[in-house]
Design a protein around this nucleic acid. Structure first.
Length: 270
DNA sequence: AACAAAGTCAACCGCTCTGGC
DNA sequence: AGCCAGAGCGGTTGACTTTGT
């Protein structure tokens, strides 16, 4: 269409963000709010394209970002949601407050795909049994793009089921009680939880114990030692609701057909 | 200790969608 | 209806780290 790219690549910084850039962006958004990403860099004094600023804010600087290990129930929910929704990371992320689509996508690609493969019973893409060990075709949306040998080898290597469960410990970062800005937040659409509930149940608040064990294991709460102060409803309440709903559907589905699960998935898309 | 291979994840790219005109 | 800008999304890359030899 001849449309100009979102940013001219001349004279703009690329690659990792510096603390100074982070500060500039954060301060600007604190004062002026999100949006107008194209004009934001100029106004904020950043030599970045708007897209880059948006991404940095959405995936890293937003105050409601929850960093730290993906908890077992989040992990399980991601798998279940993926089986329903496929690679719609933003939708899945919308059901995991404080998690970003990028984070979930990375987690899926680096942890869950391998785990599912190592279990040898599902095609992670479709969550179905593989007829036989088959290397997933590496989808190349842009087929003309050439790749180096190194990259090809790397991609190939990723198909191997070698599984090493390394504990992923992203750096602990702030997690405040600001309301979620996401429009598609599951909580905002479906669940209301009083602050006292959140407090009473602790950071993970599901009361069934296994998450407490998780806390003990890492000595942190979601990778942060500050989050218990947050009165915000926790992910677990959301997850419990989803689980219940999902499990009910699974029971029905065993006897009937895919219709219920499909409609459940559709309801999430609303 | 040095190097290679594999793993991780922040950032980028290019596409689509949406709303205003 | 068509064009455009802004925003958002998913796929991919590549720098960096970790692990293995």
């Amino acid at each position: 269409m001849g449309r100009a790219p979102c940013c001219s690549k001349v004279g703009l910084h690329r690659g990792p963000w510096t603390p100074r850039e982070d500060t500039l962006l954060t301060k600007y958004i604190q004062v002026h709010g999100e949006g107008h990403w194209r004009s934001l860099p100029k106004k904020a004094g950043l030599l970045r394209c708007g897209k880059s600023c948006r991404l940095r804010w959405m995936n890293y600087l937003r105050p409601d970002i929850k960093r730290g290990n993906i908890t077992p129930d989040e992990d399980d929910l991601i798998i279940r949601m993926h089986s329903l929704l496929g690679n719609r990371w933003s939708l899945i992320a919308g059901r995991l407050p404080g998690r970003t689509d990028n984070e979930i996508k990375n987690y899926w690609n680096t942890h869950l795909v391998k785990r599912l493969r190592s279990q040898g019973i599902t095609d992670p893409g479709t969550h179905r049994k593989l007829p036989e060990p088959v290397e997933r075709e590496v989808k190349r949306r842009r087929s003309n793009k050439s790749t180096s040998n190194k990259k090809q080898n790397k991609s190939k290597a990723k198909l191997l089921p070698a599984e090493k469960h390394k504990v992923h410990l992203p750096q602990p970062v702030r997690f405040t009680s600001l309301p979620l800005p996401r429009n598609d937040s599951f909580e905002s659409n479906t669940i209301t939880i009083s602050p006292s509930q959140g407090r009473d149940q602790g950071c993970f608040g599901n009361g069934d114990g296994f998450l407490v064990g998780d806390n003990d294991r890492y000595g942190l709460v979601n990778g942060s030692d500050r989050e218990c102060q947050s009165p915000v409803p926790t992910t677990t309440n959301t997850l419990e609701k989803l689980y219940e709903e999902y499990l009910q559907l699974l029971e029905i589905d065993d006897r009937q057909d895919q219709v219920h699960l499909d409609s459940f998935a559709d309801s999430l898309l609303v």
